[in-house]
Amino acid sequence: MAERLSRKKIISPEKIFMGMTGFFSLSVLLISVVVVYELISASEPTFHKFGLKFLVSKEWDPVQKVYGALPFIWGTFYTSFIALLIALPVSLGIAIFLSELAPAWLRSSVGFLIELLAAIPSLIFGLWGLFVLSPILQQYIEPPLSNLSWLPFFKGYPLGLGFLNAGLLLAVMIIPTISSISRDVMYAVPSNQREGGLALGMTRWEVVSKVVVPNSRSGILGAVVLGLGRALGETMAVTMVIGNTPQFSLSLLDPGYTISSAIANQFTEAFDKLQISALIELGLILFVISVIINAFAKLLMLRMNRFSGGARI
């Protein structure tokens, strides 16, 4: 009895260790609560003044102290959409090549190089977009496109900077994300599925397009969603090439603005408290979008893992 009592009093090192690591885990939750709280409380002044009109107003005029987020939200989604349109087919091609065609040595070395592409800082893409891609677009690509100006997508002047440049850069930046996840998912498709297709007399391409890709579609969707998340939040590269003009335009040739580039450009130059608050509210919008997208991607992946035990991301 005496022994049991004394053992109860001493906290075992096991409990201390578990409690400590558990406390740090709890702190991750606390940190995310702090993040949400800070974003909401700092954007309170604009929310108080403009309310939900902030989301749909097109006007952004620091001189008149009128702020609306629509051109930035539009720019963010439009550039990301262009990027996905370009990046998806290319990434699927890469994934198919790596999982179905390439011999082992090529698979690992090309995979490594594409992962390196993901490691290059966003600024370097921006520099390349500003000094290399933009002159090429301005001289060779955009003038023929602007001849098609009867289409709303090609109105405007060939500036080299704008939605097209930003979309292309973002495409290059999200290709590693989409292709490496899709590759892992396709690679996890059991080989007897492929053999079944071949035994039915399918060509190699038909096996890929009718067996492998359909089998991995929820993983590919997850990869696309994660790529979209990366494109929406990308800052520096886009800031350097988008032209920084808050306008609502469909034309690929027009300069625009995204949420992240507005924050990057205007934050240090804003002396008006309301402008800072408006920029922080833009950040809050971006945060909410990225949380929704990442939670969605995570749920997709969980679902896929439950069904097939496929690749982890």
């Binding site: 940190i31 990366r230 939040g233 992240s260 971006l286 949380v291 991607a297």
Partner: peptide, 8 residues
């Protein structure tokens, strides 16, 4: 949190 943009 891993998906939160750097600027945020």
């Amino acid at each position: 949190l891993a998906g939160v943009p750097a600027i945020v």
